[in-house]
Design a protein around this nucleic acid. Sequence first.
DNA 1: CTCTTGATTTCTGTATACAGGTGGTATTTT
DNA 2: AAAATACCACCTGTATACAGAAATCAAGAG
Lengths: 244, 244
Amino acid sequence: MSGMSGRAAQSQRALMGVRDLIVSGELRAGTRLSELTLVERLGISRTPLRAALAQLGQEGLVEAIPSGGYAVRSFSREEVIDAIELRGTLEGLALRLAAERGVAPARMGELTRLLEGIDEALKGDVADMNFDGYVDLNAAFHEKLWGLASQTIRREIERVTSLPFASPSAFLDKQANVEAFRRSLYGAQTQHRAMVEAIALREGSRAEALAREHARLARQNLEFVLDQDRSLIRRVPALSLVVG
Amino acid sequence: MSGMSGRAAQSQRALMGVRDLIVSGELRAGTRLSELTLVERLGISRTPLRAALAQLGQEGLVEAIPSGGYAVRSFSREEVIDAIELRGTLEGLALRLAAERGVAPARMGELTRLLEGIDEALKGDVADMNFDGYVDLNAAFHEKLWGLASQTIRREIERVTSLPFASPSAFLDKQANVEAFRRSLYGAQTQHRAMVEAIALREGSRAEALAREHARLARQNLEFVLDQDRSLIRRVPALSLVVG
DNA sequence: CTCTTGATTTCTGTATACAGGTGGTATTTT
DNA sequence: AAAATACCACCTGTATACAGAAATCAAGAG
């Protein structure tokens, strides 16, 4: 079996497969990843699997063992907080540069339209909002926002975001439809609007500060889960990797 | 030949070998990297070479070609500027967190001692400073500075810094001993002192701003080379990858 | 019973064989 | 002569074979 349709199809399959095994919690933090076991489980050969492990090592989801091979990484609360702060900082950089350098009106229009869509999803009160709709629109909004940055910076944002608990939709999984999270969405949308406005007004510093503060919502949600309601841990993907 | 001394010794050799070929300019921007050619040139087999290429792809020095394989990436002036801005932002984050969270006195002492060493190297005027000494001490200082950050953030800084022209010592290569660069070192040292002071005084915002501005020295040097004296391009490693 | 030591088993890192696809070239056709 | 097509060489992605190094387990000594 060689030269399948997509470019490096087996490697992609391996990457997704292993990532899924980790994020879903089937492979717990600290577990050593046996290549042969994974090869058998995923039905691929060692070469693309090793490529996937190397990539996951770069992403930070697994770490190299000095004596050889890889292990599922575990994250302390502080490390997760730093990863969130890191994302906020990078998004802040992206928005500051976008504001300073200017954004084409067409793109601003697309952002505004997404904002209106989110408003629509939030219509009504906490009980009967369209949570699933919000999740999708929020993801689309953030992606468009990143699209304002240059390739160099977008690449970094995407890398940091590949850590599942640092992503802006980490606590917006459809499985995590919890009132505590839903309540935070109104404030989030206020921040969305302010960010777009700051970019339109070329207020770089304000846009940067807003992006940082916006990312800290994830930190609030994280601390809520860890300190207030640990039962939610298994409803948020990859939070099983967080110890303490 | 298998299982040499270090962990993945051949892969390391491949990584350094290919990186050198690119940075030294032997492989020009846009060149397609033929695996067989490189294998022959470096005296290793395809497997570790492919691992190296994948890593260089992550670092951004090479880019994947849709139809397969990799090519040496080329960087526009804007992309280089963004990479420098990115480094400054990350270093700013590291310093801000260090200032906010506090640093053990022992570590502050090490930084102060390095500062004094740099002062010593700068003694005298522009003509008879100890340039080579500065280069080494500056590298050590920056590394210690990064060491203040958490692993999560340090990893990102190291990744961005792996782009040779974004590194803080990009224009401090011993081959690039040019008066224009030497003159900038006095201002740089003033910033070094201010950064350490800001951390000691827990002035997070100031430390962050200083780190950003400090990184922009690299931007100044870049623009000097590109606009004032292009003959320096071949004296600064990897600047041959910058087009325009 | 515990600790050390030796052998075995398993694993990773490396080399290489294989198959399909891509790009280039030469030939043919219009 | 220009364009289209068929053929060929090369190259990448994948699978697998191999060798040295760990880790594990068992047996023996203290």
